[in-house]
Design a protein around this nucleic acid. Structure first.
Lengths: 172, 172
DNA sequence: TGTTGACTAGTCAAGATTGACTACTTGATG
DNA sequence: CATCAAGTAGTCAATCTTGACTAGTCAACA
């Protein structure tokens, strides 16, 4: 239900129509989700059916009409419930990069090393980008940016360790 | 294509029929994927259609017949390509727990703190479990276990930081 | 020998997700 | 004014993913 929580949370902040919600998510919350537009529309519709949000058509000048959404009391209750549940629980993280690592022995050590260095360079570039992000230091979003930066540093560091071990002769 | 890489890699190790492949993934690779049985069957079928693997029915005594899979040369080539691609690239990690964090301001600080402490306790329990895992120190799987343990420690540490900041009065 | 519980092997319908697409508006430029 | 790019708003078919289910085997025990 993380995606529902996200959408309800964004709606609560006042971004009210599908397009605007998506804009916000893509621009300001890209660090914590990869929710895409059609998925968002799908979930909004589902939540409307569930009574968590109310849907209104709004005509704005000559523009195509927008569906504007508003949280209902039931939606707010659901938001609070989901938020508490999310904060209290931890969620397994799976790292797609680990799958390759599981079979790294298949390649000659020197090739593996150069591929992993390439991965590490990508991570470093990403980190540099995040460090140059300014703005939206508002509340919780700041936490997420900080979390991502620390995570990237962690991964860069971990790869150093992996490469060191690949260099050492197999010992038991 | 991470899941394909995973399946090809497992097949290469000699786990040849659907059920056995799933057993292995659930038992020994639970730390790096949440691939489920029906998904695995689906992907095996797709890869068979693509010519990456060959499918044979095998009758074993009175047992229901098994579909036994074997990598083809094209499959091996695909494996090598996917492996190199996976090792050289980095993949954005999204943390579901961050979504709650984004809205943590909604709750009173003391409640947020106690919820996050609950989350942290869960992480600590998980870490303790991993630390007691013995066996299958074979090659790459060892890396993954180690990565997970370090990641959990990282998260536990990060939550300490978050809780400290929630306690401090908002400063600018 | 009948029954029970665990193991083996896989299927299926339902739901989630997304790449690619449509269609309209607005503003700027030549 | 015609055209072109960018912005706005959303849809759809195809694909991916999985919870729940079927159906057989085997071993052990009463």
């Amino acid at each position: 239900m993380h995606r529902e929580l996200l959408l309800l949370g964004v709606l609560r902040m006042g971004h009210l129509h599908g397009y605007g919600i998506n804009e916000f998510i893509q621009r300001d919350m890209a660090f914590c989700t990869d929710l895409k537009k059609p998925t968002a529309y799908h979930l909004l519709q589902k939540m409307a059916e569930a009574g968590w949000i109310q849907e209104n058509e709004v005509q704005d000048g000559n523009r195509p009409p927008r569906r504007v959404y508003q949280i209902t009391p039931e939606g707010e209750a659901a938001f609070q419930r989901l938020l508490r549940e999310n904060l209290a629980n931890h969620f397994n993280a799976y790292f797609d990069g680990d799958i390759g690592l599981a079979f790294v022995d298949v390649l000659p050590a020197d090739e593996a090393l150069s591929l992993l260095r390439e991965r590490q360079d990508g991570l470093k570039a990403e980190l540099t980008m995040l460090e140059n992000v300014r703005g939206h230091t508002s509340g919780g979003l700041q936490f997420i940016l900080e979390h991502q930066k620390r995570y990237l540093a962690f991964e860069i560091n971990w790869l150093d360790e992996v490469m060191k071990r690949l260099l050492q002769p197999r010992e038991e």
